[in-house]
Write a protein that binds this DNA or RNA. Structure first.
Lengths: 152, 152
DNA sequence: CATATATAGTTGCGCACGCAACTATTTAAC
DNA sequence: GTTAAATAGTTGCGTGCGCAACTATATATG
């Protein structure tokens, strides 16, 4: 026993669910971000933008901000980087000239097609630490919390 | 149907567990941080330091960094703020003069005693969106993931 | 049609963060 | 005992973030 280890306090951070969720999310993000960053030179906002726009249809920055819950400035900057790198195009909408229609370029789609299977495989590997039924139960809990917090 | 809503891509971010965990953690943190910030003027690193040191024994910055998984510079700055505000003392250890023994001051303990019940109540309110058994199952999944990622 | 209000997106600014480098101290090697 | 390596903690610096303010466009009101 480390003599400097404090007595169990009234609140143990390691048992406190908000803290645990945050720590878990950081660990999982870092695990994934390694792919985005090292192999594709993307950061998390950029990856989210690409994943949201997807391979097919155009969408707006507003839509991305809403569905990822990122701040609109973060979305704006991520889009700017992706456009500079030639991965995405930004075209003023003819219907509403305040909006920009976003699409992946050919290069962007190539990256997307390569990236998505890797991301899904990492998710699969992570969740493989649970067998089928506990996993379903865990995901159900996730659903409940998201609904409770109005995240969907 | 919003005509600008993109087709379901190969990967739907809203179903991607790493993204969901991150979004959930942010939402829960913001929910809690409102107490820390508005009522006590603490940010999250400061709160974690206070919660880890706890009301009784001294501990070191190193210990806090290890158990909260915060970067040591983040811990260092949080401690500096808490000391400036008179909530915590920092005394060079006699055994190892590189280390600092950290303790809450009387004012720090008062704040801690007031803050902890509020934090636990918020946790309870959050988890009350599930009944007993689903909650156990969810927490078991959390355990599995933490173990898998070496978080404990 | 004119004015007010709302919305899409960008930008300036201050701030918190992590990295790398640093100081001070302790421990290990010979 | 001296030198080298390791550890505790702090600080300078570059970066990414959110807020608030801004531009530009669209919509609602009279």
């Amino acid at each position: 026993m480390d003599p400097r280890k404090p007595d169990p306090p009234a609140l143990q951070l390691a048992r406190f669910v908000p803290f645990r969720l945050n720590r878990l999310a950081v660990a999982v993000s870092e695990h994934l971000a390694a792919i985005y960053r090292e192999r594709f030179g993307l950061d998390i906002p950029e990856w989210r933008v690409m994943a949201t726009v997807g391979p097919e249809r155009g969408c707006t920055a507003q839509y991305i901000a809403g569905s990822t819950r990122m701040h609109k400035t973060r979305v704006s900057r991520a889009i700017a980087h992706l456009e500079e790198r030639g991965l995405m195009t930004r075209v003023t909408s003819t219907e509403d000239r305040r909006e920009m229609e976003l699409r992946l370029t050919k290069a962007g789609r190539r990256m997307y097609e390569e990236l998505v299977p890797l991301a899904l495989e990492r998710e699969r590997a992570l969740l493989a630490c649970m067998s089928k039924e506990p996993l379903s139960a865990f995901l159900a809990g996730l659903d409940s919390l998201e609904t409770f917090l109005g995240l969907r």
